[in-house]
Design a protein around this nucleic acid. Structure first.
Lengths: 361, 361
DNA sequence: CTGAAAGCGCTTACAG
DNA sequence: CTGAAAGCGCTTACAG
């Protein structure tokens, strides 16, 4: 027994290789190297020989073989819709939470990207071919959730899903409440002419932020505040275009004293337009964002905004997949995380003298 | 034959299930559903019956079984060092390139994170257990590349590696040149007091950027420019702390008129400190970043920076792993991408009246 | 055109 | 304490 056992660099060593070299069966090697059984199963001497040989051969248990046998890959999937062609800071934040928590459970993460929900929705099922033990879908735009799209045999969780998927837990944050609170903050500062630069209302998140804005405005006890809304995209560019267009159309009208933007990126776009028009933030116009991305801290003035705990939400998604029992049975529900207002320097009381919308280039 | 074949939601259908239902062997099912052979192998009628049954049962070939057989997972690994506890915009940019290219080749991407190179380096081998067909290591901090760390049976590529790994292609960019150019740009604008907020000089990238800065400054023909360098980390947080500390120590001294930051994230941290101190960018102080990550575009003002083609570099890494023949034999070399200055609005000529370092909170 | 056999590398009962 | 057998789901020769 114990024959030379050459190192073959072109092919990884298997349990059989080790067994052969040591003069023992592959199962014995399995027991000492990967075994969950008590180690007393194998004699100390055999054990050491196996261990040594494994080290020498740089043995690594083959994940595919193991997965086939155990029906478990120790891998979770993270699927994101990338309509703009690239993953963004929002996704990065979620990914950080997902990776951190997955790491604690010794789980790997495979990232999938869908480009167009209408075209790629079916691919969701393709991912569920035994390579992952669970799937997290991030921020989907679902026109109508066809019954077929939910993979049968793979635990599934969504984050900020537009539509409830039958039998799927969705993780979201209390965006309406957050929006309500930040608009109330503006009202408390004395603002009564507040323009909402909304996100695209096909998106649930945009609708909820809009709803919060409307509730805050309509609940105002004092002088009636009329809701003023323009719909834009979630990007800096789109928000800038929308605001510029609105200002052109309203030249000479009273300038709103505060802007409630769909998110931080949109707020940046608005700040740029105001800045170019010679309007100072927050002295002339106050402005608030949403999400508390890093962008909120790296502009001048820094943005007052609403924080969503994206990392924690990503972490929760992983936990849900790994320990479904924490859900306690109910599988078709929403888990709602609280939002939190972050006060910075982009908000001030309205100016004493009301501004007028200036001409735009 | 063709028996009822019930849908069992708790267990995915196999080729054997389909065969049994149709009254045919599993191999026939394999041939029509996954076969690379010409489809004439199976009669049109059998073929259709198999196809129908597969659709009905929502059949998906099991990835683990297939991988075990073909020794191929159609998955690439992307390993990143996350010393600061989180993946950053740099990584996101690389990830975008990697995902896009991997998608074109129908490859999946699994993300691994290492926390401390000294502790986790061995884990690199752990990833190479048949679950991936190739591994990309991003921005490693390698004290000394121990011979053992390179996985034997898995194609391997590094990005911005600190040290050459024997037999491993490294992808990098011409950082020193980029740094030189952007500092020259500042000098051309009239700046002569330029502070470099450097990255950690244990990192090759930081040393190269520093070298470019020094070369630019010392080559200046006019009034001698003294190099001024503070060493920080590559993160927003670390740069902010370093700049704040420096400003405290230099209160009342002349304020540099331009900041050359280790990367965009660091620039963001510096912008935040300046913003809080009431210093305006670029009017009072110009600031430049490095990398041209998404962060450079989502701050206000937007950052003048040096673009490393990170997406292209990520894409290249994938191609190298998938089509090693494009390398043409030489396996132990560097692939150097050019850098490119991107001019935005964070740079202006120095202010007419020289500022003094203000007191920090 | 179709099927029986063997094997990918590992594990889980079951015997000794 | 240790091994022979069977199986995870798929494929690749090899026979018919």
């Amino acid at each position: 027994m114990a024959r030379p056992a050459k190192l073959n660099p072109s092919k990884p060593a298997t349990l059989a290789d080790i067994g052969r070299a040591v003069g023992v069966s592959a199962m014995s090697a399995s027991a000492v190297l990967n075994g969950s059984r008590t180690s007393t199963r194998i004699s100390a001497e055999t054990r050491n020989r196996i261990l040594e040989e494994a080290a020498r051969l740089r043995y690594r248990p083959n994940a595919a073989a193991r997965a086939l046998n155990r029906r478990k890959m120790n891998t979770l999937g993270l699927a994101a819709i990338v309509d703009s062609g690239e993953l963004n800071a929002y996704f990065l934040e979620v990914l950080n939470g997902v990776l951190e928590t997955a790491g604690r459970f010794n789980q790997n993460i495979t990232v999938f990207t869908l480009h167009d929900w209408n075209v790629d929705a079916d691919r969701l099922c393709d991912f569920c071919d035994g390579r992952i033990d669970g799937l997290i879908l991030v921020a989907p735009v679902i026109a109508k959730p066809k019954p077929g799209i939910i993979p049968g045999h793979t635990p599934f969780v969504s984050l900020h899903s537009n539509h409830a998927l039958p039998g799927v837990v969705n993780i979201e944050s209390n965006e309406e409440q957050g929006s309500l609170e930040i608009v109330n903050h503006l009202i408390e500062q004395g603002h009564t002419d507040i323009l909402h630069v909304s996100g695209p209302t096909v998106m649930l998140g945009a609708r909820r932020r809009l709803a919060g804005y409307k509730r805050a405005v309509s609940a105002h006890k004092g002088k009636k505040i009329a809701p003023k809304v323009i719909e834009a995209g979630f990007s800096t560019q789109e928000a800038a275009v929308a605001l510029r267009t609105w200002m052109k159309q309203n030249e000479g009208a009273p300038m709103p004293t505060a802007l409630v933007c769909a998110n931080d990126s949109a707020a940046l776009g608005c700040m740029e337009v105001l800045s170019k028009a010679g309007i100072r933030v927050p002295r002339d116009v106050s402005i608030v964002g949403f999400d508390d991305t890093i962008a909120a801290r790296t502009c001048m003035p820094q943005l007052t905004t609403i924080r969503q705990p994206l990392r924690m939400m990503g972490a929760k998604a992983v936990e849900l997949l790994l320990k479904p029992e924490i859900l306690g049975g109910a599988s078709d529900e929403n888990i709602v995380f609280p939002t939190q207002p972050i006060f910075r320097t982009s908000v001030a009381p309205p100016p004493a003298k009301r501004l007028v919308v200036p001409p735009i280039d």
